[in-house]
Design a protein around this nucleic acid. Structure first.
Lengths: 215, 215
DNA sequence: GTGATAATCAAACGTTCGTATGAATACGTC
DNA sequence: GACGTATTCATACGAACGTTTGATTATCAC
């Protein structure tokens, strides 16, 4: 059993348990046990538990960002000299993560956690270099598609999209309860709903800053 | 210093630290220290750490749900014999939590955590009895306002709204970074953006279940 | 085979955790 | 002021945590 095997088994086990239980609640003993590895192996291969989390995220995040950029470029080219429709931009933003959520549901759930837990101390750098940087290009294209929306409001709308998205891929019990589903909501199905919802939200008229409104 | 004082100081401290660090990372010693109380006081007043979390949520959740229902009823009455507009329903859903987020930002951030961490074992019951139950009435009114949307899709759209919402109230570093803000995003400001976005998303045409689409 | 490097292993380290205990103090009632 | 209850307190417990260590085993070039 080569080193590479152990490394990957550790990454897989960590991905699953970090996603299911959270960073703190997933102990090194749980992870190494699931990976059929020795307790000390994580510190040998990665140095620390935090570094393990960083590597779990890094090994997939870059691919997702690349897919997003590829889809965005395709949309730009397909639109010719016009800017692409907002819906096409949203699809380029959402589908790579949806595909990941199907192939690696634990990773998608973990990404959702990263948004909401204070895990930035461990993954801040890799997260910044990948996901956050990639968002700039999407805001740019959305602003071209919808020139009437102020840049700041457009950025907020993309944050809303991330939030709506993150709650879905989390496989949250609430989602199934609310949706009155006995089986888990299927990713492809929900992707269509999400794109419809967010594309319409993007195309909404800009906010009338009604000052003196509700205090 | 009466008992009630200590109880409330513990609840306040727990609310803040659970929100900032998460359930596991916020230790009893941190909480009791911030509350200027003895380490044993939590177990004396609440029985356990989990019970403390449950009480932290319960003491505010019920008020929020009541506010939501009150605003929803007002919207229904104001609309007369017609159903209220989707936007009015969204406002009734969002504003009570926005108000809470202004008065008790830690609580709002904690609620966001509850959606994403596996905290349901501790708060599942109180959470179910309050927030999830209250959603049924909103889906009902939204379906009346927008009869063209299938019930399941409407439920998903309300989940999207919760997700977009939760990411905002979390005071997530990403939000400020993305929004290119040096100061925290103001709740009232973002509430307007959020309602515009979600109301438009609600009113989007129903999804054309394009089967055989992307695999 | 031999030696150097890489990887695995069992065991232990010191720390921190949530909880429990029993004594000490504060409080309200008579 | 004394008594019973409610609360606070210092302290300790056992368990679980991430990490470290030093020996042991596998791997591979020569």
């Amino acid at each position: 059993m080569s080193t590479r095997d152990t490394r990957e088994r550790l990454l897989d086990a960590a991905e699953e348990l970090f996603a299911k239980r959270g960073f703190d609640a997933a102990s090194m003993r749980d992870i190494t046990s699931l990976a059929d590895a020795n307790l000390a192996s994580v510190n040998y291969h990665f140095g620390s538990k935090e570094a393990l989390l960083g590597e779990v995220i890094r090994r997939r995040a870059e691919g997702i960002v690349e897919d997003r950029e590829r889809m965005l470029n395709l949309a730009v080219e397909a639109a010719g000299k016009h800017p692409p429709r907002a819906r096409a931009v949203i699809e380029a933003f959402v589908y790579p993560m949806i595909s990941t959520a199907r192939e690696h549901p634990h990773f998608a759930a973990l990404m959702s956690r990263v948004h909401y837990e204070g895990l930035f101390h461990a993954v801040g750098k890799v997260f910044e270099r990948t996901f956050q940087n990639s968002m700039v290009a999407f805001v740019t294209q959305l602003s071209k598609a919808l020139p009437g929306i102020p840049a700041e409001e457009m950025r907020m709308r993309l944050v809303f999209t991330v939030g709506a998205f993150a709650l879905i891929v989390k496989q949250n019990p609430m989602v199934n309860t609310l949706a009155k589903r006995k089986t888990d909501v299927c990713m492809e199905e929900v992707a269509g709903y999400l794109v419809d919802f967010c594309a319409a939200g993007m195309e909404a008229p800009p906010n009338k800053k009604r000052k003196g409104g509700r205090q």
